[in-house]
Design a protein around this nucleic acid. Structure first.
Length: 737
DNA sequence: GATCAGTAATGTGGA
DNA sequence: ATTACTGATC
């Protein structure tokens, strides 16, 4: 038997060897999914299929990178000379490739830029202003959701109009107007949003048979990861590509579908069999339910939970424990009800400290999961107070920082002057005295003349309401950008950017500020430049356009601290920092959504309360409730050795005090657990006069006086700088230390 | 008087 | 992070 098949169990081997025709792999949590995909790719190549005929699609870049690395390892061990790696990429980057080649066939320019979520909402705000729609009645986020949802379902604004005309709903009519204007604006700015990438790709392939044929011929073997998360547009894209040869292998787990709210359509995975069965060929379905990750107790709990989902599920049996050692006398699942969220956090920290003391070096990774981001605050407070290092996964990411976005907007503008969103972001950064009013006048002018905003700036002297001195300021800004438009082709990305931030005065403005925060921003700007240098080394031919493209396709989500393996399956990554360092314990905090695909020795699943998990907004419909249950299931199945569930009888949430019951999910798992213990409230007054506090901006200080209570609690704080400030506790972000 | 910059007030589902 | 208000500046 060849070594690609050697370390696989029988189900895995069958999946790898089934290469022709449609194949559905239902891969339970911890069953070795990534392993099967990578080995299957290697097996295809080994069989003699050209790597260029193989396409594997994932949802995140992280998953794609991980897979690529593992495929390289598998292939290079068996061939000394240069190996060719199949295309492994995300849905979005695949669509991007296709569109860069041929989008002109459906009437857009090939040098488009991509708008992220904030670019999208800026543009929607522009639309609201132009259509004179009240932002309070039509929330930008709601409109963005509606538009994204439409695009996920392949409904472009023309089709939206047809549906709207049919049902005569006022809200939809307004959305329709915004959608139409928004689409025209995108086009005018030479930009696509994320939804467009897939939708336009499908439109292109549907409308032009020659292009479809080109890709069908090229990619004869398709593999789709996390198929349960595909939306309709993604479904259609894979369907089109796989139509000719039918060699389509999808991998997923309907029990881990947690992105319905983002457009994922579970019917894709539930109906795959029916969908791909034809007269002359049948669909192979493989169920991999052997779990290599978790202790038996943990799997019992998870199985007990998920069996309560009856509404939509593949019948695939329960997760079976293999490999992992049976736990000792003590159950490795426990549950604790605490009085409030401070006590909950304290309990978790105490448990972690106990573990640290034991010096049980094999219990290296600890994760704390929660349903909502807001819950992380309390944990941070306690961890900091107790001096335990932790990492929050998914908090503000590097490329989402203000200073980085500012600099990137400059680059965007230089590359594509019609990008009005980028222009408006930076036109007055640093201060040039071009304010709201002036921008408004420029916008009005551009709208009337039917030119883009940048051209409006070029013609600022033709606007009566703009005086001469303002005009000069605008002109000097324009010539600044024009200069860099020329430099762009002669300078490297890093060099161009470094000049840009120096010559704009961006850096000197930050230097003048000279605060803790501004110094950090300068550091980040420098970090960006070094990221660019790295990029130049990696891709010597790479220009600014390509650099920007890479960044816009990076998933800001799913970023995990280095060393955490995706679906480890007993293959510790060498040099990951997890092995060989003795008792180095790592604590990570994240939302349940971010936990998917990861694994940890000890998992704390916190806030197990009605209203939080299941979340209050998901309790109305059975479908949403089941998604909450799956979310909980995902959290539980991340644990290898120990799973601790916690809840609070009282919790301060969104400013109000709430009394929640323990989550129904706790009752559902029905495993004997540690007795519920009520912990006495220690101290009501955490903010006492004399207490040392830390403020994110003003630094360290001490409480001099306080007044008010509850949300109105105010404090007078004397900071080390000598300044005295009166602060509202609710918003000040103070921490005790 | 118009416009701008800085400050204060306010907002919470999940990527 | 975004909006409302206020004093500063052209």
């Amino acid at each position: 038997m060849n070594d690609i098949l050697k370390d696989l169990n029988s189900k895995q081997r069958e999946a790898v060897q089934h290469t022709e025709g449609p194949l559905l792999i239902l891969a339970g949590a911890g069953s070795g999914k990534t392993r099967v995909i990578t080995h299957r790719i290697a097996h295809l190549v080994h069989k003699g299929i050209s790597p260029s005929n193989i396409l594997a699609v994932t949802f995140t870049n992280k998953a794609a990178d991980e897979m690529r690395q593992r495929v390289v390892r598998l292939l290079s061990s068996r061939s000394a000379h240069g190996i060719h790696i199949p295309l492994i990429c995300t849905f979005h980057s695949f669509s991007m490739r296709v569109l860069r080649q041929d989008i002109d066939r459906i009437g857009e320019r090939r040098d488009f830029v991509i708008y992220d979520e904030s670019g999208q909402s800026s543009l929607i705000k522009e639309c609201l202003k132009e259509l004179r729609i009240d932002e309070k009645k039509f929330k930008v986020s709601a409109i963005a959701n509606a538009i994204n949802k439409a695009k996920d379902n392949l409904v472009d604004f023309e089709s939206y109009q047809i549906y709207t005309a049919a049902d005569g709903n006022y809200y939809r009519e307004v959305i329709n107007d915004i959608y139409a204007l928004y689409s025209r604006k995108l086009s005018r700015n030479n930009a696509l949003d994320f939804g467009d990438l897939i939708m336009k790709c499908v439109q292109l392939l549907k409308q032009h048979k020659d292009i479809l044929d080109k890709y069908q011929e090229r990619f004869r073997y398709l593999m789709i990861d996390e198929y349960q998360d595909t939306n309709h547009a993604q479904y259609m894209l894979t369907k089109l590509l796989g139509k000719k040869y039918g060699n389509i292998c999808v991998v997923g787990d309907d029990d881990q579908s947690i992105y319905m709210w983002r457009g994922a359509d579970m019917r894709n995975i539930l109906h795959f069999e029916k969908d791909y069965t034809k007269q002359n060929s049948s669909v192979r379905v493989l169920k991999m339910m052997e779990n290599y990750r978790s202790a038996k107790d943990i799997l019992d709990v998870a199985n007990n939970l998920i069996k309560h989902n009856i509404y939509r599920r593949h019948d695939k049996g329960v997760l079976r424990c293999v490999g992992a050692k049976r736990s000792q006398k003590k159950s490795c699942v426990d549950f604790m009800e605490m009085l409030n969220e401070q006590e909950e956090a304290q309990y978790v920290v105490n448990e972690i400290k106990l573990r640290l003391k034991k010096k049980n070096s094999s219990d290296g990774d600890i994760a704390i999961f929660y349903r909502t981001n807001a819950q992380s605050r309390v944990f941070e407070d306690v961890f900091r107070r107790e001096n335990i290092k932790y990492t929050i996964v998914g908090s503000v990411q590097f490329y989402e920082r203000k200073e980085i976005r500012d600099i990137l907007s400059y680059l965007r503008l230089v590359v594509n002057p019609s990008d009005s969103v980028a222009l408006k972001r930076i036109i007055n950064i640093p201060n040039r005295s071009i304010g709201k009013v002036t921008i408004n006048q420029l916008e009005q002018f551009a709208l009337k003349q039917n030119i883009c905003l940048y051209e409006g700036l070029l013609n600022a002297d033709k606007i009566n309401s703009i005086n001469e001195s303002k005009c000069r300021t605008i002109k000097s800004f324009v010539s600044f950008i024009e200069k860099f438009k020329k430099d762009k082709n002669t300078l490297s990305v890093a060099e161009l950017t470094s000049r840009l931030i120096n010559e704009t005065g961006y850096i000197s403005a930050l230097e003048a500020e000279d605060t803790f925060e501004s110094r950090a921003r300068i550091e980040n700007a420098k970090e960006l430049i070094s990221a660019m240098r790295e990029f130049e080394e990696r891709t010597p031919s790479g220009n600014v356009e390509f650099f920007l493209e890479q960044i816009s396709l990076m998933d800001t989500s799913g970023m995990v601290p280095e060393g955490y393996d995706v679906e480890g399956n007993g293959n510790p990554k060498s040099g990951s920092g997890l092995t060989g360092h003795g008792s180095r314990v790592r604590v990570v905090l994240m939302t349940l959504h971010l936990a998917k695909g990861l694994e940890f020795d000890h998992v704390f699943l916190t806030g197990m309360e009605e209203g939080l998990l299941p979340h209050i907004n998901s309790m109305a419909s059975e479908a949403e409730l089941e998604e909450e249950r799956r979310l909980c299931y995902v959290g539980m199945t991340r644990a290898k050795k120990q799973l601790s569930l916690t809840c609070c009888s009282e919790r301060r949430l969104y400013g109000t005090r709430r009394w929640n019951l323990p989550s129904r999910f706790v009752n559902e798992v029905q495993v004997s657990m540690g007795t519920t213990k009520k912990v006495r409230e220690k101290e009501t007054s955490l903010w006492r006069i004399g207490q040392r506090v830390r403020h994110p901006m003003f630094g360290d200080g001490k409480i001099l006086d306080k007044s008010g209570s509850g949300d109105g609690l105010k404090m007078v704080v004397l900071f080390n700088s000598g300044e005295t400030k009166k602060l509202l506790v609710k918003y000040a972000g103070l921490q005790r230390y």
